[in-house]
Design a protein around this nucleic acid. Structure first.
Length: 538
RNA sequence: UGCUCGAUAGUAUAAUGGCAGUACAACAGAUUUUGAUUCUGUUAGUCUAGGUUCGAAUCCUGGUCGGGCAGCCA
């Protein structure tokens, strides 16, 4: 894979270290927790880690951070591998935090021996309470000054299943008065009688994130442990463990996480929406998981180009979804054929066109349409109450049928419920030329004869949320767009039969679509909208 | 009100003490039988007050505003 990775503050730090000859062997790692599917925010991290590895001909680990057995599943591990491969990246090694559980246990043992860790018998409630708040300092646990021997013995008993969950934890002995809450004797081992997806029931104690992530970086000799900025406050603790354990000095660097307008990028929130059945699954095209984007019809290139374009920095921002869409359209535009389809058909009667007359009209290369008395156009191309800028069909107005005659709208017929039933127009003889169109500056609409057309089913997606930033105030549960998925039956020209599932097409004057399914029974094509064309709403 | 990170055009991103540039969006024009694409152009920016300097978006100090942190989640 060839990526022209944009320069950023991390690549500059690396360049500087290389110049100073500070680096022996460069290694990177991408460490997802297998508790959900990857999303476009992860692509930022993937591009940093895999991208930097590519740039400096270094190796990159894919490390599954499976320290918490409550969350990790094999299914998520497989989905993560698939998504990384689909994006086009290759890992050099796969590792798991659980590979290092024995070493981590020894590290904890070592800390106890140095009188830097202790077993606390307090309840979760009391531990929380005594930790204090950002404004109020913490207070020391009664169990803080147990002897090394007692701690050793208790920790061993924790490991061997002598205690119940939440009855005891192992804590690092640091400083309950530290202004940084993470330094107030953080919990490093907790009891969980839970089957681990890889190790089964081997362990009933599990290391915390803080006591596993940095240690794994160190074991793997990762120089640049790159993570998102919510871990900034953990940095000092990260370094504390490395120093006290006297292990390889990996270093943590933080960058701002990605936000995209009208979208959420949080595994927790996505999981919640799935649970509430607001979206189908992790691969729903309306969310920005990699599988969702793939499902919607995005290309790997468009996603990577977008993420590379926005770069890596420390300030937080909300990026316009438009920009992502721009990179998508840029990538697929040149590779999509134009197909004629009427997404929302309405009958149009040419009142002065003989009912026995049929005119063969050629479109593009070797394609034909048959003009008859009754044809179909899109509902969007007629307006009962046209705005000033609206320049398609309305009563009295003249437009040109694509590759055919100019027509003037005379009247309309409505259904009983008031909806539009038919549009009646007269066609103008000898108006069937480009010169005529240019002379009268006519706008063009597309049309279709029903006899040669195919029926197709179209899924059209819109923003899942109605708010620019659904991340604030749990808005993601309230500001859901009821019309985020609209399915219609449309008519499409015969040409569609030349395409297969997964192919992308452009429907004329509408947008880019991907073929999702072709039913064998009735040959109905199911299309899914990737993106609209850039257009103004009049 | 603690600790911590940050602030460049509507949005996003460059400029590493030396001409504030790029993309998206918007607007105008050219091309176009897609209100698309392509091409050309226009609008629009260094949070604030001081300081250092020949010279500051960049370094220093104060202020303002915004993000993150109080799971036995990661």
């Amino acid at each position: 894979m060839n990526i022209n990775l944009k320069k950023n503050f991390l690549s500059e730090i690396i360049e500087n270290k290389i110049k100073k000859n500070d680096l022996k062997k460069l290694l990177f790692r991408f460490p997802p927790e297998p508790n959900g599917y990857l999303h476009i925010g992860h692509v930022k991290s993937i591009l940093i880690n895999f991208g930097l590895a590519l740039k400096y001909q270094a190796k990159c680990y894919l490390r599954f951070d499976d320290t918490n057995p409550d969350n990790s599943t094999d299914h998520y591990i497989e989905s993560i591998k698939k998504d990384i491969q689909w994006l086009g990246f290759k890992w050099d090694y796969i590792t798991y935090t659980s590979d290092y559980f024995d070493i981590l246990y020894d590290f904890a043992h070592k800390l106890i021996m140095k009188n830097l860790a202790y077993v606390d018998d307090n309840s979760p409630y009391l531990i929380n309470k005594m930790r204090g708040t950002p404004e109020i300092t913490g207070t020391e646990s009664l169990y803080r000054n147990r002897s090394i021997e007692e701690n050793l013995s208790l920790f061993k008993k924790m490991k061997n299943g002598h205690f119940s969950e939440e009855s005891r934890v192992l804590r690092a002995k640091i400083d309950m008065k530290n202004p940084n809450i993470h330094m107030r004797d953080p919990i490093i081992y907790r009891i969980k009688y839970r089957k681990h997806n890889r190790l089964g029931n081997k362990w009933c104690i599990y290391p915390s994130y803080d006591f596993s992530h940095g240690q794994c970086d160190s074991i793997e000799k990762i120089d640049f442990s790159i993570c998102t900025s919510e871990f900034k406050d953990h940095n000092i603790l990260y370094n504390w463990f490395i120093k006290k354990l006297n292990i390889y000095p990996s270093q943590q660097y933080e960058f701002a996480r990605l936000n995209i307008s009208y979208n959420i990028l949080s595994k927790r929130k996505i999981a919640k929406l799935i649970q509430l059945k607001k979206i189908r699954y992790w691969n729903d095209p309306r969310i920005l998981t990699i599988s969702g984007l793939r499902n919607k019809g995005f290309t790997p290139k468009s996603i990577i180009d977008f993420v590379n374009h926005i770069g890596v920095q420390k300030r937080d921002s909300i990026i316009d979804y438009n920009l992502l869409n721009h990179f998508l359209c840029k990538d697929i535009h040149k590779n999509t054929d134009i197909i004629i389809a009427i997404v929302n058909p309405v009958k149009l009667v040419l009142i002065n066109f003989s009912s026995t007359r049929t005119e063969k009209i050629s479109f593009y290369k070797n394609r034909y349409m048959y003009l008859k008395k009754i044809i179909y156009i899109d509902k969007k191309d007629f307006s009962e109450n046209p705005s000033k800028e609206y320049n398609k069909l309305y009563i009295g107005n003249i437009v040109k049928l694509q590759n055919s005659y100019a027509i003037q709208c005379n009247s309309i017929i409505k259904n009983q419920n008031g909806s539009l039933k038919e549009i009646h127009c007269t066609f103008i003889e000898k108006s069937n030329s480009i010169e005529y169109k240019n002379q009268y500056k006519l706008n063009v609409i597309h049309w279709m004869d029903i006899d040669k057309s195919y029926t197709c089913k179209i899924h059209m997606y819109d923003n899942l949320f109605t708010h620019y930033n659904p991340n604030i105030d749990n808005l993601y549960l309230k500001a859901l767009n009821k019309n985020s998925l609209i399915t219609t039956y449309s008519i499409i020209e015969h040409k569609i039969t030349e395409y297969k599932i997964g192919d992308r097409i452009q429907i004329i004057r509408n947008g880019y679509f991907i073929i999702k399914d072709i039913s064998k029974k009735d040959n109905i094509y199911t299309l899914s909208k990737i993106s609209g064309l850039k257009t103004k709403n009049y």
